[in-house]
Write a protein that binds this DNA or RNA. Structure first.
Length: 501
RNA sequence: GGUCCGUUCGUCUAGGGGUUAGGACACGUCCCUUUCACGGAUGAAACACGGGUUCGAUUCCCGUACGGACUACCA
C-alpha cells in the first residue's frame, strides 16, 4: 500500500466550470504538488439529463490555461481509466448489489410522483419528509414488502432504485482538515439513493467507489458537500474501506449581498465568474471569462489562491511554484469569501508589469514597428489593468484630437497661455533633433525668454495636442507623434481655440 | 421547518488569554511629477451580542442574533 498522496478534482460537465470550482482544482493541485502526490481529473457525468456538450473540453482548456492540468485522468489517462463515470457504469452496480446482499442497502419501488406527494403532504403539516428508518417500513421497498412480492416486482422489471439502509441510531464523526471534528446523528440522515432507476449510480455511490478504487487519500472539495460527508463515511464503513481525509473548502460568495456565487452571477457585477468565455450551446448566450477579460493566468491563480487561504506571512505575490511551496491544508479558512474585483485587478496590474515588454508589443501592437511598439508599452504600462487596453490607448493616442477638454480650456486658456502656445508654434520648427529631452529644452528656453512659466502653458499644450487634460509624459508623447504632427496639431488648436489677444 | 457550518476594518485576511489588534485592496491627505498614472509616506476604518471561566477575554466555553450550505432517482 503506497503512502503517496492522491487527490482528485471531480467536476460535472453540466456547463462552464465556475471560478469556485477552479479554486477547488487549484487547491487540489497545490496539495498534490506540495506532497509529491498525484492530481487526478475525474468527470462525474452520471446525470445524463444534465450533460452539456463542450463542458468537458471547457474544463480541460481552463485548467490548461492556468497551468494546473491533471497528472492522471481525463485528458491524461492513467492506470484507473476510464475516468469518466458514465464509462464506468457497470462497476457501480456490482458494489450496490454487494450492499444489497449484505443487507446494508435495499430496493425501493416508490415512484418520483409518490415521493413528491409524500413530501408535499409532510410539508403541509410543517415538517420535512425523510426516507429513513421511521418511514421506510410504510413505503414500497424490499424492507417493507413481503419477499415474494419483491421478487415479483423485480421479475416484472419494475423500475427500482437502491437505497442505503441508514441505521436508526448512531453518531457519525470525522475530523475535517479545515473544520476539525464534525458530528452528525444518523437519525437526521435519510436513506439516500445509491443507484437510480436508469441504472446509473448517484454521486454518492460513484464518488465513494471511485475514490476508493483510485486510491484517493484526500478529498478536497467545496463546503456544499459537508452535509453529505457523513453519508459517505457510512458508505465507506458499509464497504469496510477506510475513508480518505476530508477537507471542505469555504464557499466563494457573491460580491454583493449574500449567498453562494452562482453561474447566474455571471456578468452582473461587471466581472467574470468563469475562467474562460463560454457560449451556451442552447441559448447562444455568451458569458465573460477571466481570460478574455484580460486577466493573466498568474494573476488569476494568485488571486484565487488567496480566497480562503493565506500563507501567514505578508507576502502576497506568489508564483505557482511559490504557492506549491507555501500551501497547506491547515491554513485554509473556515468562513466563506466574497470576491472583490478591485483586488483581482490589482493582482493583474502587478503581473502585467512583470510581463516581457516585447511580448506585449508583439501581441497588442503588432501593427507597429518593434521600436514604436516598445515605446508605447513603456509609455502606457503603468496606466492599464488589462493588456488589451494597450491597443485602444495607442489607437486613441495616434488619432488627432477631434475635440478638446472644455474644462481645461476654461481654466487655463488665457492671454498668457495663448502667447505661450504661439511662441512654441514658432519654436518647434526650429528644433533640430526631435527628441524628448531636446524638445523640453526648447520649450523651457523659449518660454523663459518670454518670461512665461512652463506650468502656465503645459496643460493647455497637452490639450492642444491630445485633446485631453491628462495623460502620459508630454515630452515623450511629442517625440512619438513626430515633429510635423505636433506642429500640425498645434496650428489646428490655435485656429480652434477662441483667440484672446 | 430540520440538520450541519460559519461570524476580526467596506472587501481579502494576520493574530490569539495581557498587542498602540498587523498587512493588502478600495477610500482620504501629502510628497514626487508640467498633468494623470506609477511609486513613496500618511490617515480614517474591525474583534456580532449576552452570559460564564479567569487576576485578565477579541482569543476558551455556553447561549442569542445574523449569515450560509444542505435537505432530488443533480452534482
Amino acid at each position: 500500500m503506497s503512502a503517496s498522496v492522491r487527490v482528485r478534482f471531480a467536476p460535472s460537465p453540466t456547463g462552464p466550470l465556475h471560478i469556485g470550482g477552479v479554486r477547488t482544482a487549484l487547491y487540489n493541485y497545490l496539495f498534490a504538488r506540495k506532497m509529491g502526490g498525484t492530481f487526478i481529473l475525474r468527470i462525474e457525468d452520471t446525470d445524463q439529463t444534465r450533460f452539456v456538450p463542450g463542458a468537458e473540453q471547457y474544463i480541460l482548456e481552463s485548467l490548461a490555461w492556468l497551468g494546473i492540468s491533471p497528472d492522471e485522468g481525463v485528458g491524461a489517462e492513467g492506470p484507473h481509466a476510464p475516468y469518466r463515470q458514465s464509462e464506468r457504469k457497470d462497476l457501480y452496480k456490482a458494489y450496490a448489489d454487494q450492499l444489497i446482499r449484505e443487507e446494508k442497502a435495499y430496493y425501493a419501488f416508490d415512484t418520483s410522483e409518490e415521493l413528491d406527494a409524500m413530501r408535499t403532504m409532510f410539508e403541509s403539516k410543517g415538517s420535512a419528509f425523510q426516507y429513513n428508518a421511521l418511514t421506510r417500513v410504510k413505503l414500497r421497498n424490499s424492507l417493507a414488502l413481503p419477499a415474494a412480492e419483491v421478487q415479483a416486482l423485480l421479475d416484472a422489471n419494475t423500475p427500482y432504485v437502491i437505497r442505503l439502509k441508514v441505521p436508526a441510531k448512531g453518531e457519525i464523526r470525522f475530523q475535517d482538515s479545515v473544520r476539525d471534528w464534525v458530528h452528525v446523528h444518523t437519525s437526521s440522515m435519510d436513506d439516500k439513493v445509491l443507484m437510480k432507476s436508469d441504472g446509473m449510480p448517484t454521486y454518492h455511490l460513484a464518488n465513494v467507489v471511485d475514490d476508493h478504487i483510485m486510491e484517493i487519500t484526500h478529498v478536497i472539495r467545496g463546503e456544499e458537500w459537508l452535509p453529505s460527508a457523513p453519508l459517505h463515511i457510512l458508505l465507506y464503513q458499509a464497504f469496510g474501506w477506510t475513508a480518505p481525509q476530508f477537507a471542505h473548502l469555504p464557499l466563494l460568495l457573491k460580491p454583493e449581498g449574500n449567498g453562494k456565487l452562482s453561474k447566474r452571477d455571471a456578468d452582473l457585477g461587471g466581472f467574470p465568474v468563469f475562467p474562460m468565455e463560454w457560449t451556451d450551446p442552447q441559448t447562444g448566450a455568451v458569458s465573460k471569462g477571466f481570460k478574455q477579460e484580460g486577466y493573466l493566468p498568474e494573476a488569476t491563480l494568485n488571486f484565487l489562491a488567496f480566497l480562503g487561504w493565506n500563507p501567514g506571512t505578508e507576502q502576497e505575490l506568489f508564483s505557482l511554484a511559490e504557492l506549491v511551496d507555501a500551501f497547506s491544508l491547515e491554513r485554509i479558512n473556515k468562513a466563506g469569501a466574497k470576491f472583490d474585483v478591485n483586488k483581482a485587478k490589482w493582482f493583474n496590474e502587478q503581473y502585467l508589469k512583470q510581463q516581457a515588454p516585447e511580448a506585449l508589443a508583439d501581441l497588442y501592437l503588432g501593427h507597429l514597428s518593434k521600436e514604436q511598439g516598445l515605446a508605447f508599452v513603456s509609455l502606457f504600462l503603468d496606466r492599464i489593468t488589462f493588456p488589451k487596453e494597450l491597443s485602444a490607448l495607442v489607437a486613441a493616442f495616434i488619432e488627432k484630437p477631434s475635440n478638446y477638454d472644455e474644462a481645461v480650456i476654461q481654466n487655463k486658456w488665457n492671454a498668457e497661455s495663448e502667447k505661450g502656445l504661439r511662441i512654441l508654434a514658432d519654436a518647434f520648427p526650429k528644433v533640430g533633433v526631435w527628441q524628448a529631452d531636446d524638445i523640453k529644452l526648447v520649450i523651457h528656453e523659449s518660454l523663459e525668454a518670454a518670461g512665461i512659466k512652463m506650468g502656465k502653458v503645459m496643460q493647455i499644450l497637452r490639450v492642444a495636442l491630445s485633446g485631453n487634460g491628462a495623460g502620459p509624459d508630454l515630452m515623450i508623447s511629442m517625440q512619438l507623434w513626430g515633429k510635423d504632427q505636433v506642429i500640425e496639431r498645434l496650428e489646428a488648436a490655435l485656429k480652434t481655440f477662441p483667440s484672446i489677444n
